[in-house]
Design a protein around this nucleic acid. Structure first.
Lengths: 328, 328
DNA sequence: AACTTCTCTGTATACGTTCTCAGAAACTCA
DNA sequence: TGAGTTTCTGAGAACGTATACAGAGAAGTT
């Protein structure tokens, strides 16, 4: 399956490879008959310019940016893909999506591989682990924008959500609805958003003068099933929580499953979740524009690729508290 | 931001570029001190081998396969991504994901771009339009496997779901539950799965001796909102459907929204949908292993990349009818 | 008519890597 | 000690493309 080259096209059209290159790049100064002959040869042979070889020339960009996320199955990340893709397309760049599955080794391999392939820029959701040295090293070699989480001390742009504010508002809502024993269900405590959201939750409790019972805090819930198990435990004796704040959409789904077996339970969560509005119970959710998150990050990236040397920028996107679900 | 090259490393280590290449590729016959010197220089300069240049050499594969899907936001496609990625990783290949958004022009541009970048193979969910010539042309140049939809007449492997059988079973279930005016809500009628599912639905009606009222058929529902509007119309006069079969997960969500405003409505749908099991109404769903779909397709692809010249293979994955939701 | 400018095309080189070839040094075995 | 083998390294040629340079012919200008 060897692909035809410009040399093959040149031979077929009876011209030099340089002329073929000129036709392909639509340059001036080509006799119409020559152009026609070359185009005929291209069509006949089914020639596709080898973009790999083209990129090798100095000054030729790969016209590719990469997005490294955790799991494309989560609607949060896939919305970011859509946003980033919109902007990449606008800049006539190809978007390569890779996923890490929360595994640092995979993130490292993937990022190295992308740099080796000389992508023009990287959009990265770092895994939890603080291997700042890798990010630091790469940030110096290729334009890079961090999404949702910011490795401390790495000089690169970033776009995150207002995790603290959102969580604080969600918890405050539960308090004002009369709940007093509000549990917090989180994922990996090393993830920065988790820390920020837990802090917001604590702040809301403190603002209301409520004590923060450590028994109400559950961390390390990585899957829907983890969260369902943890929530079930928290909602029964001896903890007896009367409400739950879910750190993210996966955890929220797990909590909803667990809560189905209980009566009155206050539920709030970070991230929007589809179909929650049809559930027979009220649920408060912190929502935001995830597509915009991807767009903003990509916009920052292309600004850097374009040569911007502005100071490091840290965007924080606002969140909104919405009320889903219905009183049954 | 020029990246250091092997030449730079060679100069820094006081050896020739060939020796650097040998160290990087971990070849035999290198003096330990030489190796150490080169490795020191690599670390010092932060050298990353240029994979682009490497791929240019004849016989060197890009070690990249691409997956072209419609929309990464739909859990159906993202599950396929996961499956394909598992297999790609196992074969030490990078997986590039591109999306077409159901737009044929984008699919064409994307596929051309991928071929130009000399990916080793393509996993493609073709858009609805029957531009078979493009697929035919590309299938001759690069190993290709079609997922979920099969362009007619293109000599390439494919993996699809048992759409006909699944739809038939779902419709038969609604009939056996006593419903008689069962509506069919579909998307783009040019999509092959849609045609197969509608055929399965009609077969079930025919098997039960039920007439097939054209007023019960609604096509062209591309979004959740489209489906909700269509379903609302079908469930009221003059059509007065008493049940709905939803062609895919997006449509099913729309139907669920519309049905919330009605009393007793029989609902069945193709694809699984999260949280449906917590809804206060029974819903029958046709489920399957979407991750396995991606795995099977990638496995076929790597088999071809490995040089297999077996006859064209067409895998059909089975589906299961499950009962979600609860009687309220 | 001589000169300049414009149009068109080919030759040759470079991009960063791998790999063949070849040569030098060190080791083995008679 | 001499011939053969193994270990190590460098020079140089590709891979497919883009481009600087040069050159030739045509057209325009003085």
């Amino acid at each position: 399956m060897r692909q035809p080259t410009m040399r093959d096209v040149a031979k077929a059209a009876g011209v030099s490879p340089a002329t073929v290159s000129r036709v392909v790049n639509d340059e001036r100064y080509i006799r119409p008959e020559t152009r026609a002959a070359v185009e005929r040869a291209i069509a006949e042979l089914g020639f596709h310019r080898n973009e790999i070889a083209r990129t090798l020339r100095p000054g030729q960009a790969a016209n590719t940016v990469a997005l490294v996320i955790e799991d494309p199955g989560n609607p949060f990340w896939s919305a970011i893909i859509r946003g980033a893709e919109q902007i990449a397309r606008r800049h006539r760049h190809m978007l390569v999506v890779g996923s890490t599955g929360q595994d640092y080794d995979q993130e490292r391999d993937l990022l190295r591989d992308l740099v080796r392939r000389r992508v023009d820029g990287l959009l990265v959701v770092p895994t939890a682990h603080d291997h700042v040295d890798l990010h630091h090293e790469l940030a110096g070699r290729v334009p890079m924008v961090f999404i949702d989480r910011v490795p401390p001390g790495v000089p690169a742009d970033s776009v995150v959500l207002d995790s603290f504010g959102g969580a604080q508002r969600a918890a405050a809502h539960l308090i004002s609805a009369g709940y007093r024993r509000i549990a917090y269900l989180g994922g990996d405590p090393a993830v920065h958003t988790g820390a920020a959201r837990q802090a917001g939750y604590r702040q809301a409790l403190a603002d209301a003068g409520l004590p923060c019972d450590p028994a109400l805090i559950s961390l390390g819930n990585h899957t829907v099933e983890d969260a369902a198990r943890s929530a079930a435990a928290l909602l029964t004796a001896p903890v007896n929580a009367d409400a739950v704040f879910a750190d993210n959409n996966r955890i929220c789904v797990g909590v909803l499953h667990a809560a189905a077996a209980h009566g009155e339970v206050g539920i709030a969560g970070f991230d929007d979740v589809e179909l929650v509005d049809l559930l027979p119970r009220p649920v408060a959710l912190i929502t935001y524009d995830a597509v915009e998150l991807g767009r903003q990050a990509a916009t920052l990236l292309f600004d850097r690729i374009g040569g911007s040397t502005a100071d490091v920028r840290r965007l924080v996107l606002p969140t909104t508290l919405v009320h889903r679900g219905r009183r049954s």
